[in-house]
């Protein structure tokens, strides 16, 4: 039996913790990066496509976890109808394309985990992250690699101990995402008020399980 590592709790800047009780980051580092999707994962994705239909996509807003992300989006100045939450983005893709389209092992793992749990997941290259990950506001003069100009001060970012790795629910810094050379991947889940701990754990384990398969 394989020994499982535990997920780690990321840090959240104190001012954000006070402002958004319930905001948290959990992550797990797993061996390997992305690869071609094995046949059985494609089959699982196809089964998920059959199970997830249009009415379920319409009803997502009624479910507590997708609703919690929608509310948090509103709280931080995003419009979930313009920039869909991760689960709604995946559901929209399913409705538009008639199924969950297989892209790569990592993308498929995230799709399966996001749809099954509703939790917002991201992946970063573990080899290019320094220390523990967390959520904070951007500092004056700070930018996102690969993106021209500075970030507006106070932008919410997922960061390691040295620099922002990506916007919270947005773009990932150039070179910080999973690439073909990646040998270790960090799966991160952003938890907001209303999303239970067990759903976050389940989401990370689902994605990790698919990645290891």
């Amino acid at each position: 039996m394989r020994e499982e590592a535990a997920t780690e709790a990321g840090w959240v800047a104190p001012e954000l913790r006070e402002e958004f009780p319930g905001l948290a980051l959990r992550y797990l580092s797993v061996d390997g990066g992305s690869a071609r999707t094995p046949r059985h994962v494609k089959g699982r994705l196809a089964d998920l496509s059959n199970r997830f239909s249009g009415p379920q996509a319409i009803n997502l807003r009624h479910q507590p976890i997708p609703w919690a992300y929608r509310v948090f989006y509103r709280h931080i100045g995003l419009d979930p109808d313009e920039q869909p939450t991760p689960v709604e983005a995946v559901a929209l893709e399913r409705v538009k394309r008639g199924g969950f389209i297989s892209r790569s092992l990592l993308d498929d793992a995230l799709t399966i985990a996001i749809i099954e749990s509703g939790v917002a997941l991201r992946a970063f290259d573990a080899g290019r992250a320094e220390g523990r990950l967390g959520i904070r506001q951007s500092e004056p003069g700070e930018g996102l690699e690969g993106r021209p100009g500075e970030l507006p001060q106070g932008t919410l970012v997922i960061a390691d101990e040295a620099r922002p790795l990506g916007l919270l629910f947005g773009a990932i810094a150039a070179g910080r995402g999973v690439r073909p050379r990646t040998t270790r991947t960090i799966l991160t889940a952003v938890q907001v008020k209303g999303v239970p701990d067990i759903a976050v754990e389940e989401a990370i384990w689902l994605a990790a399980d698919v990645l290891r398969s």
């Binding site: 001012e15 954000l16 402002e19 319409i58 009803n59 807003r61 009624h62 609703w67 929608r70 509310v71 989006y73 509103r74 931080i76 100045g77 995003l78 419009d79 109808d81 313009e82 920039q83 506001q137 507006p152 106070g154 932008t155 919410l156 916007l167 919270l168 629910f169 947005g170």
Partner: peptide
Amino acid sequence: ERRLGELFTSAFPRQGIDWRVGALGGPRV
């Protein structure tokens, strides 16, 4: 947001209703 979500669901399959509220340049506090 909950009320709007309920209305969105009950309004299906009617098309052409604007549900967008507009972003304020986030993500930020």
